[in-house]
Design a protein around this nucleic acid. Structure first.
Length: 647
DNA sequence: GGCGCAGGAGTTTTT
DNA sequence: CTCCTGCGCC
């Protein structure tokens, strides 16, 4: 193991934090202050003191930051094995569920559902509960509410009363849907993302497992602590109960995920929950110029509930950020595209330019303008590789090979059969739930019992495909790539051409997919990794050249990233802060944090765009500038008006 | 009951 | 742009 030079590599603030004595520590790390660095060096420090590497639990929110941290640790320590327990909350949860699940009555082959699977299941359940009320919430909202309840450890009743009073009258129906959802997941041996945390938490109720895990994870390091939800905080508190070795790094000013349960209070009340905690502040910013940080510092000052800190730049003053007004959002798009195109003409790197916005639909017009000027750009939103329909079709077959009770996978494949829609699917699923072997049951399905003769042929053919696929898998000699090709040749290829758009393209995709899987044969590991991966593409492209494209991103997705130049679109009242946040004080504060995140993404050049009107619902509606501009102080910007600039 | 089409609406989204 | 809903036809 290399010896690490903490004094040389870290500034004084970072050193104090990384070399903190035993006991709970809270590290308040401002934007661009070396948060990841401190976390990595903390792990290195523990290892250098002789802590065994399997005693360290390092938790992150995204797969990407887990990988970044492992890589940095490798650079630091040289030829050292990676930390075995470093990963996302959900990934660690899944591993622990696999290890201990049977001891608390869970099945062994479990499949993870993604959001689409969840939505399909909820939709089917809404139909079985049979409400005809047109005000009844759509499946996506029901899912959000149920998920929020899990992550906040709240009962539905309390959550509805608190945040969704207008839906309170549906409490009985929603509770019934939640109950059926739970049962169907259990019968299907499926776990959704929230279950990965919930069951982990439940494992800790077991009088044998709790001390075992408390002993295993002697040092707990958590990234982005400000985004933990009550469930995650409770989980961490429980694990750290005895030894109190909790090292939490985060920035309360960047807590922007309350809509999915994140609770800044976890961070704000840390010192109360851990009275002997040491608090460290990282306030030196290595990223942005003074005049950019001035705006961030100034605006965030308006928040009532926060841990005070001031970012100090090591860079020089820099040029004044710009505030540009436009007649309309269309003008805004043209202007931004034009400025980017001028940058391109000057030979600037397009990858150093980013366009940020509060909501995705605000990026529409800029997409059109950039495309017109042939400026290459990437969107951070959009479909991920493994979420594309044809990939999910193939995954559904593979999932059924591993777990023949997976009703989400069945539902997907059944609905691809002509004339089989939601109703028939539901009937078949309910019937299959009563059978010992669902696949065999499908093969031997007789007309009349469950289905009309017309449908039987298609359904038994699916059963036979699955059964033949299972035989190929059980023989144990075939790679996953082989299975994918077999799925195609057994009849999926025909379905692909029958029901999906641009089938040729998709077929080529699947050939490439199969090729990638030629040297893999562990189905369970593969499926869980794909379900817990942010983007299959990303991992496949790991280490390849970063393409030089303008980045279009929502502010949420830009967290943790940085660019030389940042354009922030539509900085208007009602849009940013969004209309929906205006009612609650705590929501306004979150919008302000979001503004803080947006501004601190820029290294040198920051341009805030303020249209005076926008084309919504057919006509132009007037728009006022955002309050955040006033809060920052007008003297902190250079002001321009597009019409003057244009003439 | 399935399916295709037209029209309207729209926070933010890891795992 | 994409998702959802309602409608009419088979």
């Amino acid at each position: 193991m290399n010896s690490v030079d903490f004094e040389h590599d870290l500034n004084e603030e970072q050193q104090k934090a990384a070399l903190a004595p035993d006991g709970p520590s809270l590290i308040l790390a401002g934007a661009g202050s070396g948060k990841t660095r401190v976390l990595t060096y903390r792990a290195a420090y523990l290892l250098s003191k002789g802590v065994p590497f399997h005693r360290i639990l390092l938790l992150t929110f995204t797969k990407k930051s887990a990988i970044v941290m492992q890589n940095r640790l490798k650079d630091l320590l040289g030829d050292h094995p990676p930390l075995p327990w470093a990963g996302t909350f959900h990934h660690v949860g899944f591993r622990l569920i696999r290890e201990f699940g049977q001891r608390v009555g869970l099945a062994s082959a479990l499949t993870i559902m993604d959001r689409e699977d969840q939505l399909d299941m909820i939709k089917a359940l809404v139909d079985t509960v049979g409400t005809k009320d047109s005000d009844f919430p759509p499946a996506s909202l029901i899912l959000n509410i149920m998920s929020l309840a899990s992550n906040k450890l709240m009962a539905l009743e309390e959550l509805l009363g608190d945040r969704y009073p207008h839906l309170f009258r549906y409490l009985p129906e929603l509770e019934e849907i939640a109950r059926r959802y739970l049962v169907r997941k259990q019968d299907s041996r499926l776990l959704d993302y929230d279950d990965l945390l919930l069951y982990w938490y439940r494992l800790l109720d077991d009088p044998e497992i709790l001390p075992l895990l408390q002993g295993r994870f002697r040092f707990i390091l958590v990234d982005e602590y400000q985004d933990t939800n009550p469930l995650q905080a409770a989980l961490l508190d429980r694990l750290a109960q005895g030894h109190q070795q909790l090292f939490a790094v985060g920035d309360d000013s960047q807590s922007i995920y309350s809509f999915r349960g994140a609770n800044v209070e976890n961070m704000l009340s840390f010192s109360e929950r851990y009275p002997n905690a040491e608090v460290f502040r990282l306030e030196t910013n290595y990223r942005s110029t003074v005049s950019i940080l001035d705006i961030a510092n100034r605006v965030i000052l308006q928040n009532q509930r926060q841990l005070p800190k001031v970012l100090r730049s090591v860079l020089d003053q820099g040029s004044l950020p710009e505030c540009i007004t436009f007649y309309s959002d269309i003008d805004q798009a043209q202007y931004v595209a034009k400025r980017i195109s001028q940058k391109e003409d000057r030979g600037e790197m397009m990858g150093e330019v980013c366009v940020l916005y509060r909501s995705h639909y605000l990026s529409l017009s800029i997409q059109i303008e950039l495309a017109r000027r042939r400026i290459p750009f990437t969107l951070t939103s959009g479909l991920r590789f493994y979420e594309q329909a044809h990939i999910k079709d193939i995954l559904a077959y593979l999932r059924l090979v591993l777990n023949p009770r997976d009703s989400s996978a069945f539902s997907r494949l059944l609905r691809m059969i002509p004339k089989v829609g939601p109703k028939a699917t539901e009937k078949i699923l309910q019937w299959m739930a009563t059978c010992d072997d669902p696949v065999e049951a499908l093969c031997s399905l007789q007309a009349g019992k469950v289905l009309t003769p017309k449908l039987v042929a298609g359904v038994t053919s699916l059963g036979e495909r699955l059964s033949s696929l299972r035989r190929s898998y059980i023989s144990g000699t075939n790679s996953l790539g082989f299975l994918v090709r077999e799925i195609l040749s057994l009849g999926y290829k025909k379905e692909l051409y029958d029901i999906r758009e641009n089938p040729q393209e998709r077929e080529e995709d699947l050939e490439a997919f199969a090729k990638q899987l030629d040297n893999q044969s562990d189905l369970e590991t593969f499926l869980s990794e794909i379900a817990l991966l942010e983007s299959f593409e990303e991992s496949a492209l790991e280490g390849s050249v970063v393409s030089d494209r303008v980045v279009l991103s929502s502010i949420h997705q830009a967290k943790g990233l940085e660019w030389d130049t940042v354009f922030l679109l539509s900085v208007n009242e009602g849009l940013f802060p969004s209309e929906k946040s205006l009612e609650r004080m705590s929501d306004i504060e979150e919008e302000r944090r979001l503004f803080y995140v947006a501004v601190t993404r820029a290294r040198k050049e920051l341009v805030l765009c303020v249209p005076k009107s926008a084309q919504g619902r057919g006509r132009y509606a007037p728009l006022a500038p955002s309050r955040f501009l006033l809060e920052a102080g007008s003297e902190r910007f250079s002001h321009e008006d597009y019409e003057h600039w244009y003439s």
